[in-house]
Design a protein around this nucleic acid. Structure first.
Lengths: 247, 247
DNA sequence: TCTATTTATATTGTCAGATGATATAGTCAA
DNA sequence: TTGACTATATCATCTGACAATATAAATAGA
């Protein structure tokens, strides 16, 4: 792991295509980390892609001259990112990066950074507002998207429970973000959503303004349908700015 | 890992602060994945931060009713991202995300990334452009920040190696983003940076335009120092748009 | 001959028990 | 007080094993 400990370097495996590595600290990595590097190099050299088979854990263990469990430490790490997949009998295959998984774990780690809530709000405003530039055309031309957003917003009107309102409100915002079809932004917005559950207190106090918030959503949608990006942005930013007075 | 196998759910541990989890598939995760989730929750609930001690592997094993090796499968995964650190005698502590590690492993996997590069570019433009609204005042009033950014940019002029240029260019952009002091945006930019190492080819082809890029950086800084946010944004967006013709 | 079922095999998932390596705390002597 | 030594704690890695799961092969029946 990140801490370094002196591990005996396993003998160079008899892999003729082993590339020269000029940056690996030779004597200070854990075996598992070294194995992960070797597996990565194996994948790169053979230009493997998703679904391709890899050697088994036991074969890797023999290749690298380590125990199978040490190989597992590497494959677990790579699997955690989704890079590898494993199944009984079938063995190891190439996966694809699981951005949701990465985001989930990086996200809670970001939470530990104790970001001030003003920063969370600012980040949210940048992302949601910036995404509107990509969302506006789609909302204006694709009536199904527009209607779905309206439906999500209308559903808010009947909600009286604060947790349900939070969930509904976030769902609306996330759907709005999703209409941008910019995957990374959607993922980042999802990350930020984790923190906005902590704004529960604010939403309790803002209860008299819930109806106003629903109206704001409507106005934003109407501006987007009319392709008035600047107005939509201004309305969204004003809408999210309500929280600043509460933090 | 990503593949699911039916694992007997360990008995609910006697941890009174165990939160309710409504989204975990109960019977289809590997133990190591479940343990990773539990550790994540443990960290969240206790609001632990970097350097804080965690229970030992053996203690976690007893808490969760699994073997120590199963705990290690989880801690290895979390440690791989740098979220946990482990050392003999000392035990497990909270680390910080190891962006270099993440970068190395996500970077090689880029070809299989879910996100089209146009989306990555768009996300980057939203985040960096949006952050300027927060950065502008600081750059205009804090000469040390402005000078540091200028120095980073000047350093680019002497670089001829493409990898060094990438690193220097990204460092400039990250420092620009950092001057916004909006932590989440900085983190998201850091995540996106991982993917921009894959634009190596583009930068090779754009070599005749490196000097122009450096000039763009200068113009952006000058606009920010003059508090001309709209101009700075337009310049930044134009600067990043060069990549669109390459994807 | 084809299909369904059963059996065998392959490989990961998890465990118990153990030793080695590393780091920290405590003790003692100068 | 400082440095050296010893004891202790805990991770790092291993061997050996069985359980669980999935796939391939063999067999039986229509």
């Amino acid at each position: 792991m990140s801490d370094e400990s002196s591990a005996a370097l396993p003998p160079e495996p008899a892999v003729p295509t082993e590339p020269t590595r000029t940056t690996t600290p030779i004597a200070s990595q854990r075996l598992g980390d070294m194995v992960a590097d070797r597996i990565k190099d194996y994948i790169i050299e053979r230009k493997l892609s998703e679904g391709d088979r890899l050697p088994t854990e036991q074969q890797f263990a023999e290749m690298f001259g380590v125990s199978r469990l040490s190989v597992r430490e590497a494959t677990r790490a790579l699997g955690f990112l989704g890079i590898l997949r494993s199944a009984p009998k079938r063995g190891l295959t190439i996966g694809r990066v699981d951005m949701d998984r990465v985001s989930t774990f990086l996200g809670f780690h970001l939470a530990m950074s104790d970001y001030p809530r003003t920063q969370l709000l600012k980040a949210r405003m940048v992302i949601e507002s910036g995404a509107l530039a990509e969302a506006v055309e789609r909302i204006a031309t694709d009536d199904a998207v527009y209607q779905r957003l309206c439906a999500l917003n209308d559903r808010l009107a009947g909600i009286t429970d604060v947790d349900a309102f939070i969930a509904g409100d976030l769902a609306f915002h996330q759907a709005l973000l999703a209409s941008s079809q910019v995957g990374p932004l959607i993922a980042f917005g999802g990350l930020l959503e984790v923190f906005f559950r902590s704004f529960r207190e604010e939403l309790v106090h803002l209860r008299p303004e819930w109806a106003g918030g629903i109206e704001s959503h409507r106005a934003i949608l109407a501006a987007l349908r009319d392709r008035n990006l600047n107005l939509a942005r201004a309305l969204l930013e004003a809408h999210l700015s309500r929280y600043f007075s509460r933090v």
